[in-house]
Structure formats: C-alpha cells, structure tokens
C-alpha cells in the first residue's frame, strides 16, 4: 500500500471531540424533531453536551464540540448558510463567550445550572440581535423577547439540571 503523502495524526483529544460532537449532533436532530410553537423556541438539548464538556474538558474542547455540532447539524438538517445557520452560529458564539467568563465563577456556589441559564440567555440575546440587525430590521422583533426569555429560562434550567446530573453521576474521569 502506498504511504499517504499527508499523514494525519489523530490524537486522543481529536477522537474525544469527534465522539462528543457526534453526541451533540444527535441531540440537535432530536431537537429539530420536537414540534415548536414558534421558530427559535426549542429545548437546545445539544447544549447539555456543551456544558458537560465545558466542566469536564475545559473551554477549548467545548468550543470545538459546539462549532462542529453547529456545522454538522446544519448540513444534516439542510440549513447550512441559510439564515437559521447564522442565527445558530451567533447564539453559540455568544453563549460560548459567556460560558468562558462564567466558568470562572466559584464552583462551590455556581454549578452547571447557572452556566446553563447564563448561556441560554446569551444564546437568545445573540439571536435576537442578529435578527434585528440583519433579518428583520425593525424593533418589532423585540416584541418576542418575553417569549424567548421565558424559553431560555425554562430550558436553560432543565438542561443545566440534566448536565449537572450527568456530571454528578459520572464523577471519575480517567485522563485520556
């Protein structure tokens, strides 16, 4: 067999990111299958993966997993480079930024639930801003803010609880 010219070495970290991103993509598909009363209001189950990864492996891995998830989910669901993709991307970038700050909060006091709620609000905030600036250039979009904020609070709390449970139930982590 001819040796390949470019040799890609796959590290354990790469494999882990791939596994976790695959799990997140799976949850994104589940998300998309859940009927929603209003476009943009959905549980955001994939964020559970982001939270667990953030707590377990740090911010950089979480950013990779989230980025790959947004890309792969948009390809699978057929909205790559459509408005929904940029909304999803903006929301994810903003919530990652907020998570990057929020994870420095003292862990004794602020757990995954806090992180999840903060990230959910950042997500919806980013999406609303992009929608206002680009898709619907009128302040009318902000009329939907209370609905989105309520969804962010409810789903942020639930996802945070699920993430906290997952983290608490799998405490031992062998360094890969």
């Amino acid at each position: 067999m001819t040796a390949s010219v470019t040799e890609l070495t796959v590290t354990a970290e790469d494999r882990r990111v791939a596994w976790l991103a695959a799990a997140a993509v799976g949850l994104s598909l589940v998300d998309a299958a859940i009927p929603s009363p209003l476009p943009g209001i959905k549980p955001g189950l994939a964020n559970i993966v982001t939270l667990v990864v953030l707590v377990r492996y740090g911010w950089a891995t979480a950013a990779w997993v989230t980025g790959l998830r947004v890309l792969a989910a948009s390809l699978l669901l057929g909205y790559f480079l459509a408005p929904g993709f940029f909304l999803s991307l903006t929301g994810s970038v903003l919530s990652l930024a907020v998570l990057g700050l929020a994870r420095h909060l003292p862990a004794r006091w602020f757990g995954p639930v806090s992180l999840s709620i903060l990230a959910a609000f950042a997500h919806i905030g980013g999406q609303l801003l992009l929608a206002r600036l680009w898709l619907i250039p009128h302040d009318g979009v902000f009329a939907l803010t209370p609905l989105f904020a309520t969804a962010a609070l409810v789903f942020g709390t639930l996802n945070g609880l699920i993430a906290a449970k997952l983290i608490a139930e799998n405490p031992v982590e062998s360094p890969a």
Binding site: G111, V113, T145
Partner: peptide, 26 residues
C-alpha cells in the same frame, strides 16, 4: 444538584423575563 448561586442566577433570569414583559406592548 442546585448550588446556592444557581438560585441567584435563576432569580436573575426570572427578573430578566419580568423586565422584558413590557416589550410585548412593542
């Protein structure tokens, strides 16, 4: 699973939702 600060963040979230309610009258 809920730590003390989580309640604070949750309360802040409830406040944010309440504060956004007037926007319904946009």
């Amino acid at each position: 699973l809920v730590r003390p600060g989580d309640w604070l963040v949750f309360a802040a979230g409830v406040t944010a939702v309440a504060a956004s309610l007037p926007l319904l009258l946009q």
